[in-house]
Amino acid sequence: MAAMFSDAVDVPDDVPLSVVEEITRRTPGFAGWQQEAWLYHCGDGAAFLGPAGYRELEAYPEALAMLRADHRRYGWSPADTEEFLRGLDRTGEPTAYLFRCLHCNTSLASWDIG
C-alpha cells in the first residue's frame, strides 16, 4: 500500500518551508473523514499521537481547550461544544486527532466530522 501524506493547511508563518516539506513529502499522514490537517507549534510540526475520543482527551486539558477555542471561533455555544466533545470517539465519528509539541510538550488537537 502506498504511503499517504498530509497537505499543508493553515501552516503558521513561523514554520520553515523545510518543515512543511518534511511533513507533506516524507512523514506518513493519517486518514480523516475530511481534510486532514497537521498541527504546528513552536515553529515546528507537532508529533501526531493518534486519533482520540473524549475519554482519551481528558488526560490532555490543553488539547481540550484548543478544541473549545476552535468551536468558539465557529460560533458554537458552550453547551453545544461540550455535547460535541463528549461525543468524540477514537474509532468512530466525530473524532479528534491528538498531537504534542516537540519543543514544549503542549498537547494539541483537531477534530473531524464524517
Rank of each mutant, 00 (worst) to 15 (best):
V20H: 07
E21T: 14
E21S: 08
E21Q: 15
E22C: 09
E22K: 14
E22V: 10
I23W: 10
I23Y: 07
T24P: 14
R25V: 13
R25I: 06
R25W: 09
R26Q: 11
R26P: 03
R26K: 08
R26Y: 14
T27N: 03
T27A: 06
T27I: 04
T27D: 03
T27P: 07
P28Y: 07
G29L: 05
G29W: 10
G29R: 07
F30D: 12
A31I: 13
A31C: 11
G32R: 12
G32E: 06
Q34S: 14
Q34A: 10
Q35P: 13
A37P: 05
W38L: 02
L39V: 10
L39K: 13
L39G: 07
Y40A: 01
Y40D: 06
H41S: 06
H41I: 07
H41Y: 11
C42F: 12
G43L: 10
G43I: 06
G43R: 14
D44H: 14
D44C: 08
G45K: 09
A46R: 13
A46Y: 14
A47I: 12
A47Q: 15
F48D: 09
F48G: 05
L49A: 04
L49E: 12
L49M: 11
G50V: 13
G50L: 06
G50F: 08
P51D: 02
P51T: 15
G53Y: 00
G53V: 02
Y54T: 02
R55K: 13
R55E: 15
R55I: 12
E56L: 10
L57G: 04
E58V: 14
A59E: 03
Y60T: 01
Y60L: 01
E62N: 11
A63M: 03
A63P: 08
A63N: 06
L64D: 01
A65C: 11
A65H: 13
A65Y: 11
A65Q: 15
M66A: 15
M66N: 11
M66P: 03
M66K: 14
L67K: 10
L67C: 08
L67T: 04
R68Y: 09
A69L: 09
A69W: 13
D70Q: 12
D70P: 07
H71S: 05
R72A: 12
G75Y: 07
G75E: 07
G75D: 10
G75S: 05
S77G: 09
A79L: 05
A79C: 03
A79Y: 08
A79W: 04
D80E: 15
D80I: 00
T81L: 03
E82G: 00
E82K: 00
E82A: 00
E82Y: 03
E83M: 01
F84T: 05
F84K: 01
L85G: 00
L85I: 09
R86S: 02
G87C: 05
G87S: 08
L88P: 10
L88D: 00
D89G: 10
D89F: 02
R90K: 15
T91I: 03
T91Q: 12
G92K: 03
G92F: 01
E93M: 14
P94C: 07
P94N: 09
